[in-house]
Design a protein around this nucleic acid. Structure first.
Lengths: 154, 154
DNA sequence: CACGGGTTGTTCAAATTCGAACCGACAGTT
DNA sequence: AACTGTCGGTTCGAATTTGAACAACCCGTG
């Protein structure tokens, strides 16, 4: 591997834009959620995914693969959320090792309470800032980026 | 504020794509840097910004505002990097409170050593995955997103 | 010169993160 | 049934992050 192919100006703009937006948006969302609903962003994500799942429950591993944190990080968060009454653990009948995380009524209520403010912030910081064309470019481009990382990383 | 304007399908695709890509790309970069150069991503960013600064030094506050972490987080990182010999602290002559972080020779060397692998990874996970049009859309759209968050947040 | 408001960087405790090690359990083979 | 390799989740320790509180200091005003 001889000379490095450095980034040209266009590439650099895209890269640093992505990096900055990524950091800033995440921080902002975390703040908003914590203030308005007492949830961290990871916790909110967990609630969303559970609410969308059949029977409102998912295996730990499935949740972890979503994207959030490592396995151990998930264990920690679920433990916290269980203390807060937002989820409940249920052991899998067909596999003693398996554990389901189940959304509780309180969890669902908390999510529904937090969602409007969250969506509003998402619009404010990202969605409503972009043109429809940019939205599509993001969806297509970053969708592919995510897909590759998921495959390759697995 | 009556009904919430939820995200339509296009917006949702863009949003979740952004979120997933953001998390996955960051994690990947962190891994690569840590393995190949023994640097965390925040540390790498600090090196880059110092290397680009006049006299290779910046005030703590300027570094913190860049985007990375909170003030206290920066203090911690700089302390770590100082122990590793990558940077040095220099107190500001005109303002006793002020502190400059100065890039050392070892710090610059470490950066030059790490850069090729880093850039290659950036290409692999993001830049080379996108079309030129998508790169421009990212740069323009996310650039604006970042700009707004910086102003508003300040 | 004294005063008050805002700045600078650090310190502190608490929360969160990660990877590596671990244990019990599954499944396929012999 | 014993053996081996793999999987699912938890536990552990170390590293990192954050916001709030703090101490010292700058500056414009009176």
């Amino acid at each position: 591997m001889a000379g490095t192919r450095w980034l040209d100006e266009r590439e650099m703009r895209a890269w640093s834009g992505f990096l900055a937006a990524s950091a800033l948006v995440n921080r902002r969302l975390d703040q908003q959620l914590k203030e308005d609903a007492g949830l961290s962003h990871p916790q909110y994500e967990i609630l969303v995914r559970l609410a969308a799942a059949p029977d409102r429950e998912l295996r730990m591993t499935e949740l972890a693969n979503g994207l959030i944190n490592s396995k151990s990080g998930l264990t920690y968060q679920i433990t916290q959320m269980e203390k807060a009454g937002l989820v409940r653990r249920r052991s899998c009948p067909s596999d003693v090792r398996g554990v389901f995380a189940v959304l509780t009524g309180a969890g669902l209520a908390r999510l529904e309470e937090a969602a409007p403010g969250h969506v509003a912030t998402v619009r404010e910081v990202l969605v409503d800032v972009l043109t429809p064309e940019q939205l599509d470019a993001l969806a297509d481009g970053l969708g592919e980026v995510g897909r590759r990382l998921r495959e390759q990383g697995a």
